[in-house]
Design a protein around this nucleic acid. Structure first.
Lengths: 362, 362
DNA sequence: GTGTGTCATGTAATCGGTTACACGGTTTTT
DNA sequence: AAAAACCGTGTAACCGATTACATGACACAC
């Protein structure tokens, strides 16, 4: 049994294909009688329009492509969740493509989406302006979120530099001096901006810098933590390039017998859900991830609808991370697993802070 | 500037559209001369075939839809990662749709994918056979992974029941008696199978059962842990329906002054990356998540290619979880953050166990 | 030199929608 | 009562690919 086409429906309802199309799209005038006949026939045949055919004649696909560098960890899963929610409510589908090891591959991924998507959200950091232009051709609206503020192109960037400065300033203000940075992978623009912010803030405070390389994964943070626990003199604070690495590092430092935050303070970046659940709770720079994903998708849809219009949206929207201080950096609230009474307050706070994950996006 | 069509390429190369198509698809005979002219023209025009048009004439989309219940946590992000890797290597695109609150919505999502995908992987637990049939119509191959072994339909299920039994038996064998289960959301078939396994194993061991409700989120696990920490008599083991909740519960219990595993043992389910990184490392039932996703996608593609052939693949593939014992349930390896020398061995083990996340799928 | 087979190429139908335009019938205007 | 306006419906062109079939060129055999 082949799937029903619009012609099958027209035949069964004894009307023309044009009328069927009009009824199903709510466009154009139709009598109540035909409307009913068509709807009844469509239901009986379980008719669903073939999206390929539709996209061919309307040159719209109702689909948006998302180009990701990778899918590790909670960050991207949160981001996609936000986008997915927005997409559904706007009647769009989401097509994801990740794990592009180099610019060539990412560019190929973009190209292979031509005719398949109405617009793209690009988070892959491998894509510089040249590659993007090569992948363009068809005037597909693109929203950049790869951390590079490509001038004249609509984009959303997190103020990574500013966030990193906030982190360092907080650590300095609470008395830390030997502050190490666990950096994200080289070539990742976000990682580089965070590193630059760290370096600048440290220089401004007149402190010596020390950078360990990481890859944004928990495992790499853990490895960095193991190395740092052995180092002499011991650092008294760690600013990790993201929460994943911060959590990994924290566990390694604790394994090494160090107390957080008494011996070493830790700060992450992103505020993924787990950040408030580890012990001690992780100080971090909050980006409302799902919210950002939602707003990115909505903006792209606006771009798509406005395509060709004079008022070009080429602004670079900036998301400013907000410092969330939790016990991992707070000398005033020591946490020791065995001292029950002393941390009752902390426990309550942790509870109150536990995000209602499910309801966050409603 | 509009995107180039096959006719533009044909014109520029001074050949017919048929030849262009033949060259680009590598099908049919062409001279070296025409091949070169066509390739040169295609490159000059940055031509990429319009996938909608192609899918219209070939009735193939090279796209696979994934219907998810939700995108929370690491489980789904791992799963999608595995699928994405497989999809790219097979030349398919992935279109995801999540957060379906009820069967109606999930069914609508399936229907809206007609003509858009060549096949579906369904993980949404809301879909019983009836709804699936309603969404079918077009003979779209569907691979079920929602935990319900729908007879006569290709599916992959995790042996949740068996895994739960393993977990309980391990706890019983190590001397635990007051074993509480934190269940996943009602209506989720995986959650129900794990619960049933727990109940059966407990009954077989002659132990009283106790179930706390959760929602598969870390936050709900945390809430359950807070309640359990106060309970009298205190449970001496917790088997959580997944790792997310296990981690949440563990942190809450630790906040409540309980030592893991001395006072309470904890077991999760799934073996998400974080399981090996929390302290103490979480005992869990390992499913090679990304691997399972990869293999699911590959099987679906085989289904698609075999569509219509006599040898119908309706088998129900079973993934058997494997018990991974880590310190959270092991009385022989007490972990105390302050006792450095005593846990040196444990530390090493944890390091060795830390998965090379990046390389796992290569 | 005509017939036949091979092979590269072109022509045109087709996939399943959307939509401009034509058409006939009713209602309103003058 | 004739003209104009309006409205619901149908016909057919079009979107951009694939591909069955027709065509024409050329080589080889008889």
């Amino acid at each position: 049994m082949k799937a029903a086409t619009i012609r099958d429906v027209a035949e069964r309802a004894e009307v023309s294909v044009a009328s069927v199309s009009r009824v199903l799209n709510g466009a154009g005038p139709v009598t109540e009688a035909t409307r009913n006949k068509v709807l009844e026939a469509a239901r009986a045949l379980q008719y669903v329009p073939h999206s390929g055919a539709r996209s061919l004649s309307t040159s719209k696909t109702q689909t948006i492509g998302v180009i990701l560098p990778d899918l590790y960890g909670e960050f991207f899963s949160e981001l996609i969740r936000g986008m997915d929610v927005a997409a559904r409510s706007l009647g769009y589908h989401l097509i994801v493509s990740s794990s592009h090891d180099d610019a060539e591959e990412a560019s190929a991924a973009i190209r292979s989406m031509r005719g398949r998507v109405d617009g793209l959200i690009v988070l892959s950091p491998h894509l510089d302006a040249a590659n993007l232009a090569a992948g363009l051709a068809g005037r597909t609206p693109i929203l950049l979120m790869n951390g590079g503020a490509a001038a004249g192109r609509p984009s959303i960037v997190v103020d990574n530099h500013g966030g990193a400065v906030l982190a360092v300033e907080h650590l300095v203000a609470t008395g830390r001096r030997r502050i190490v940075h666990i950096a994200g992978p080289a070539g990742n623009l976000e990682a580089e901006a965070r590193l630059a912010g760290y370096l600048q803030a440290m220089a401004r405070a007149g402190l010596p810098t020390s950078v360990v390389e990481g890859e944004f994964t928990q495992a790499s943070g853990h490895a960095a933590g193991v190395a740092l626990a052995r180092r002499e003199p011991r650092p008294d604070a760690v600013f990790a390039g993201n929460d994943n690495m911060a959590v990994g590092a924290m566990l390694a430092l604790q394994d090494g017998g160090l107390r957080i935050p008494e011996d070493v303070a830790i700060i992450g970046f992103d505020d993924v859900p787990i950040a408030s659940l580890v012990r001690p709770g992780l100080t971090t720079l909050r980006i409302h991830i799902a919210e950002t994903g939602r707003s990115a998708l909505e903006r792209l849809v606006r771009l798509i609808n406005a395509a060709g219009e004079a008022v070009a949206d080429t602004a670079c929207e900036i998301v400013r991370p907000e410092l969330v201080v939790r016990p991992s950096s707070n000398p005033a609230t020591p946490t020791e697993a065995s001292s029950v009474p002393s941390n009752a307050g902390e426990r309550l706070r942790a509870l109150a802070e536990t995000p209602s994950l499910k309801g966050e996006n409603s």
